[in-house]
Design a protein around this nucleic acid. Sequence first.
DNA 1: TCTGGGGTCCTAGGACCC
DNA 2: TCTGGGGTCCTAGGACCC
Length: 426
Amino acid sequence: MKAIVDCNSFYCSCERLFRPDLQHRPVVVLSNNDGCIISRSDEAKALGVEMAGPYFKAKPLIEKHGVATFSSNYNLYGDLSWRVMETLRMLLPQNSVEVYSVDECFLDLSHIPVGELPAFALHLRRTVERWTGIQVSIGVAPTKVLSKVANRLAKKHKKLTDCVLVLDTPRKTEQALQRTPIEDVWGIGHQYSVKLRNSNINNAYDLSIKDVNWATKHLGGVTGARLVRELKGIESIQMLDELVNKKMIATTRMFGSPVKDLKDIKEAIATYTSRAAEKLRRQHSAASTISVFVVPREQTNSTHFRHGPTISSHIILPLATSCTHELIKPAVSLAERLYDHTKVYKKAGVMLSGIVPDSSIQGNLFNEPSGNRNRMLMSMIDNVNFAMRDDVLKFAASGTTRNWKMRQELRSPRYTTRWEELYEIR
DNA sequence: TCTGGGGTCCTAGGACCC
DNA sequence: TCTGGGGTCCTAGGACCC
């Protein structure tokens, strides 16, 4: 059997951990740039604050009810996420925890007898809460997709389930599927849910009794077939090894306010490139393709939101590299190429792909690999930046004025990762 | 004048996830 | 005035090979 562990209202719970006064008050956390709402406490959900809705639209409601509002504080969330995952790793055999996102992980529970699963899952949930202060919900079932179904119901009926639900009989599984609207199935997004409802498939059960071949045809090929098999209880999505390296690394940001100057765009691109290169080095990889994109501001009269066109271009490097300065040069030249002085920009980004392990960089007849000198320089910079924080060392191209920096007006202290922001008790 | 079959590799774009 | 960021996987179709 498999389980999914999911932190309840994770970002809000992190904020509350250091603000006990907010325990029973509504809380929301905003996306980067304070753009939209990405986490809501149960109290905020009850008030009707919408998930992923724009902040400025929800603001009247938020102010009326005194909802505590925070900008996202990824230093804090990342650290608490690590503590939750570590706790689970300590309670389970090696390699049976697969981190799926900052607030979720899958567990392989095949070593636990089925009859003992409810008690074991409850033990996990309570231990995580006692050790980290974070409340989680756990769904247990024969497959990953079914465990997601169980998890959703556990979370939805907290009082009844104590945040744990085990689907250990066909009867229970069928009931759970009946109670899951089709759009809440993991892997069914907006497009597919509309399509399925039009074919009179309204809940997870309806989909689970469809033929696998039908799914192949109508739900995006093998992905859809896998999904339907999982709903039938046939294991089709395996547990993944941890430490799988990323195949693409991106750093992209909305600007705090629209940007017009090429100079600012180039600084932003250089900064994003530095960040992306750090991520690359952290997984000991090098990249051979660098793409840059910019998004001009939309001139629009329409009331509902649309993304402007994305203008992008890429360069394939003769040799894969992870050195910031070797990546900044092509990135900035791409930015120059894309820039149009008649436009105003609201977003830009850098993507690295063609990723290979840095131990096996393909040689090239005309280019000597840059070798150890650069790698040593880079790891020195990484070490200094890690120890001193806040990018003490950076490349000149990144600039110092940073007119394009994102807004984060309501960020809480980084209680657990900065000495000077440590929680104080008087 | 006629123009096969089987394959690989790459890219763009769609759909989804949290 | 103000709508996030970072990923994955898959398919179709074009270019190219013998």
